[in-house]
Each structure stands twice: as C-alpha cells, then as structure tokens.
Design a protein around this nucleic acid. Structure first.
Lengths: 347, 347
DNA sequence: TTGTATGCGTTATCAT
DNA sequence: ATGATAACGCATACAA
C-alpha cells in the first residue's frame, strides 16, 4: 500500500506556510524570502514532492513543451528514417532540454491534420517541422497553425517571400563551394545528380549553387550533365548509369545528397571506373556513412548541431513575440578521398 | 483579435446537450446514443474544438504519454548519438503513435535523478530506457521508480535474476551464429574484439556466443585472440593493430559491434592486408554504415523495428498490470562481402 | 513578502 | 442514456 502522492498542500502544511507560497517558492519567480524558500524546498525534498505538470499546465495555460514533427516522404521506406533528420533530432533534443523544455516527437506519414492537434490541444507551446513533405499540404498545416495563433518553425529552404519561418543550410553557397573546389582542382565536365523539381526546393538551391560556380569560372551548365534522381542510393546508382550510357563525357559528379553520391560511386565501380582515379564524386549532407565509404566521400557538411540549436532558439524567440535571429547556416565543404586533382594540375 | 478557444461547454451549448455528455461522446467509451454522438461531433468540428489535454490529464490522472530516456556514456562525443539507438528511437516513435500514445524524449548525460521526475510529475505513464549508462546508477533510478509505482522497461541484456524489465537481442545466439558461419567457411583462428567487462553485459553475452560456437566445433578460445576495445571506430582500429603487432596468427575478426569492425577493417588495410582476401571481418548491429563500407560488412543484425514494437508493447502490458510477453529478439546474420570461405574449402 | 479565494477545462460520481 | 455536481492540483489576482 503506497502513500498518496504529496500535493503542494502537503508541503504547505509541513513547511508551515500557505499553499500559494509553496507554489511561488518552488518556481524561480522569487517573491519569497530566502528563509521560506529553504523551508519549502526542505519539505518538498522530505516528502519527495514533484509538481504535477498537468495541473500546472492547465492553470498556467502553457505546457513547457515543444513538439518535433517529422514528416517523411510517403515514398520513403517504412522503417527507415533519413539519418540526416535523426541527427538534427538529436541536437534539437539537447537544445530544448538545455532550455528547460520537454520535447514531444512524432513521425507523421499520412497528411492528417494531426499537426494542429498538438498545439491546439495544448500539448505543446511550439512546433518544429522537419521534412515537411509536399509543399501544398505543408501550406495547409501552417495556415491552421497561424489561425490558432501557434508558433512554429520549419527546417528547410530559406526562400524569399515564403510563408512561415524557416531555418536552413546555405545550400547555394555549400554546393557552390563544392563545385568551385572541383573546378579549382582541374575538373571541367561536372555532372549534377538530383531532383530539382519544385518539390525539392533545397535541391533546387544546390543546383543553383552548381550553376553559379560554373558561371563564375566561365563554364556552361550543360543540360546533358544534369540528371534527375530521387533521394536514395538506388536512385543515385540508376542515375549514374544513365549518365554513363548516354556517353556524355564527364570527369566529376556532384550529387544533391550523400545517398545519391554513394549510389553513383557504386555505379561507377560497377562499370569499372575508379573513384577518384577516373571520376571525382562529391555529395551533400555529410551523413555518418559518408566517412565510411570507400573511398571516403568528399561532401558538403550540414551543421546539424547548429541546426538544432537555431531551431529551438528561434522558436522560443517567436514564442516570446520577438523576431527571428540568424536563419541561414553555412555549409562547409569536407574534402575526403572521393575527389582529387586531375588534368594539367593533377597527377 | 482571435476568438477564445472553445471548451466543452461551448460544444454542449451548440449541440444542445450537457457538458458531461460532450465529454462522453468525444471519447469512445460509448454510453451515448448514436444520435447525440453525431450532434456532438458535428458541433466540435464546427467550432474546431480540441480537448485540452492538460485538463484531461489532470482529471483522469494519466497522461497518455510515454517517455523515452536515452542515457549516453559520458565518454561518448558530445554531439553524436549511437546510430543504433537512433534506429530504435524511430521504431519506438512509430509503435507508440500507433497505440495512441505521445512520446516524450530526453537524452540524459549526467546522472541526475531526473528520471523519476518524468513519471512522478505525471508527464508520462511509463518509461523506456535506452542505453542505461553505468549499471549502479541505473539501479538507483529504477529503485526510485519502483518506489513511486511507475512502470518502465529497459533495452539491454536479458539476464537471469535482473532487477527491472528488459528487452534485448539474443546476443549469444547472434554471435554464435556469426562464429559458426566463419568456422563453417574454413576459418580456424578467429579473434574477438570488444570490451567484455561487467560494464558491457551485452558484449559479454556476445563473447559467450563466440566461445560457445568455438566449443561446439571443438576449437579452443585462445586468450591471445581476445582484445579489449571500446565502442568506437578508433578503438577498433587500435585493437586490430595490437593484434597484428602481437604476431598471433588469425584468419578472421569478429567485433562486438560494427564500429569496432569498421575500425579493424581500416587497420588491416593500413597494414596491407586484404578483407576478405587475407582476413574475414564480421561485425554486430548492422548499422546503416555497415552496408556502405568497402567491402560491405558481414554482420549480425539487431532488429530495431521489432525492438521498438516490443518495448512499447510490453511497457503497455506492464502498465495494464499484465506480465511481459516476449523479451528476447533473435539476431540474424547478414552475410556480405567482408567474409568469405577460405582454406581447404575456399578459393 | 505572504495569505485567501477563485478558476483553469476536463472527467468521475451520483443521481435521474 | 443523460444531467448536475464535485474534484483533479496548481497558479493567479487581490487583499493584507
């Protein structure tokens, strides 16, 4: 037979103060003398008292909780989650914990309007979106949130005139750096693998960075060197094969993401081409697997630690009625062994 | 100027029923006529009503929420989370969502007694532990939970006479299968890399599976073939070098986990040895990177999808006062290219 | 600084 | 099957 859980009234009795004083003393809002605070804390410890968060949340009308909503492409395989998102998830978790917020997570696949539930049912004070799925359904979601007056922030492409609040990597700069690196190391025929439709604005930005870097070097962006590829190793493999079969000459491949780059490396090897001997390959994301490939993949690193920090930081700013701070995170080229100098400059 | 959020009273008024009837109709506990249910649901939709979970939780004394607590080794690098745990996290998320539970997650590093807070503050109805850190602090945690009458379940080694409730892979069987496979393909001098101290009971089980398989084939477990290694690529690399430097002959390496195996492969290559040409290498876990290594790593796959499912399933059973169901998950050998037949049998 | 009284929005209990 | 009423445990407004 276990004792009933103590309430703030029990603490009040034990400490010889009123219940409201207990409540005050246990938060850090002060307005209590050092003396009573010690008495209360002592009593609370003695009875092993813990504030009932449900009562607190009901009364204060806030939950001290953030929700992280991860939307996967319906096409994604049921069991796997994009490792890149998982990495952000990890840093968001830490960042919100550091600020005293609990984190509720949910992986959505269907486009239920469950989104708003989280906030309008007062489960969470703010929402972080990861992988928002298709853009139209995303717009519906944030519309309902705006209507309900709920704060949210989204990881994704930072575009001008966008509805909502976004935090994202500098995809243009990141890919531009990668391509500039290839050009500087003697590559001239650089293929781009990735889906640049409007469904993937981030890949679109990366492609723009690619074009930009070529232009800066006075090189044309040959349409024959751009191939569509979904976000998977298999798709990257297939895209590289299409490129090879087309007979278009090329000396490097940049991929919209690491998975595609890895698939492309396998395709090249399957056809007897050496990486980086015959072709350099560069990815984007720097997922963990990127450093384990053979050769280790040169790629553009998205700073997931900063991402989580900035997402939480800015969401809290929004919740406090303030404006966003920094929203774009620099992406950094990580040179490994899948790319190397060639031509007149190289060995 | 936004309208106030509607309450159940508003719905009651609109639907022309009492407020308590609204509450009944909105849950599935029935006891309401089909007619009134429809009226209520209609009114709720019309006003875009959502139950306030804080009020509901306060009144019903349950939160419909599970908490996932991930404890990392303090030694682990600040920013990285074991990909294997992340994978379980993904499946736990789905499993709890499927059962209508919200999931609260927290990554702990210090050994604060924050653990009990989650449950005794009524934030969560049950707790799932992942990576419980060191065993003694774990025992303290669960003691306070037991005292508070809170249900919890832990991912880890399933050992006889253990306090608490565990779900885990069959580490003995998994590693035994792996070693038997190596023996069957002609390997005779198989090294084991991993920490088998009492801090790592799971690795200990794997080592036991190793010994068992050797014994079944009438082979001795040469102490010179067992080397300590922490759980990281660098440690695996170093351990393999020590093995090589010792001069002990060997034709295969099994590692306590994939990261160690990957490090060992790199060490072998550094010394000019071919995998699997000269030495076969086998890991454990089947993390994503395992299939991207060169050659792709033969390993023992832990079924993380089943793990999440079973953790949630059994936690709910405990919460319902029932006994645990299945607690051990079979581990399955995945043969890739880092191992291959040799000797009289092989090429 | 502290105490008193009230209410947050729902579910549970007891009627009918 | 439905309605009236109390209660969940805390935080806030106001008074002292």
């Amino acid at each position: 037979m276990r004792n009933k859980r103590p309430t703030s009234f029990d603490i009040a009795e034990l400490a010889g103060v009123s219940q409201s004083t207990v409540s005050r003393a246990l938060r850090r809002d002060s307005m209590v003398s050092e003396d009573t605070r010690l008495k209360v804390e002592q009593a609370a410890r003695q009875l092993n008292y813990k504030v009932d968060v449900n009562a607190r949340n009901l009364r204060s009308q806030r939950s001290n909780t953030l929700a992280l909503l991860l939307y996967e492409d319906p096409g994604t395989s049921e069991s796997l989650i994009n490792p890149f998102f998982l990495s952000i998830l990890g840093s968001v978790t830490r960042a919100s914990a550091r600020r005293g917020y609990d984190l509720l997570i949910s992986f959505q696949q269907s486009s239920t309007d469950w989104t708003a539930d989280y906030a309008s049912s007062k489960r969470a004070d703010g929402i972080i979106f990861l992988g928002y799925g298709d853009y139209t359904s995303y717009l519906e979601k944030i519309a309902s949130l705006d209507e309900a007056g709920i704060e949210y922030i989204t990881w994704g492409p930072v575009l001008p005139g966008q509805p909502g609040h976004f935090i994202g990597s500098d995809n243009v700069q990141g890919m531009s750096d990668a391509v500039s690196h290839l050009i500087a190391t003697g590559h001239r025929r650089i293929a781009f693998l990735g889906d640049i439709s409007e469904n993937c604005p981030e890949y679109r930005d990366r492609y723009q960075g690619y074009v930009q870097a070529l232009a800066a070097a006075g090189l044309p962006a040959d349409p024959a060197l751009r191939l569509d590829s979904q976000t998977s190793e298999e798709a990257g493999h297939a895209a590289a094969l299409r490129l090879l079969d087309a007979g278009t000459p090329f000396d490097a491949i940049v991929a919209a993401c690491d998975l595609v780059a890895i698939g492309a490396m396998h395709a090249l090897r399957d056809r007897g081409l050496a990486v980086p001997g015959d072709v350099s390959v560069v990815g984007f994301d720097d997922i963990q697997a990127a450093s384990y490939t053979n050769p280790p993949l040169t790629t553009v690193r998205q700073d997931t630690a900063a991402a989580g920090e900035l997402l939480v930081e800015n969401l809290l700013r929004l919740m406090a009625g303030r404006a966003l701070d920094q929203t774009i995170i620099p992406a950094r080229l990580v040179v490994r062994q899948s790319s190397r100098p060639r031509g007149p400059l190289g060995a």
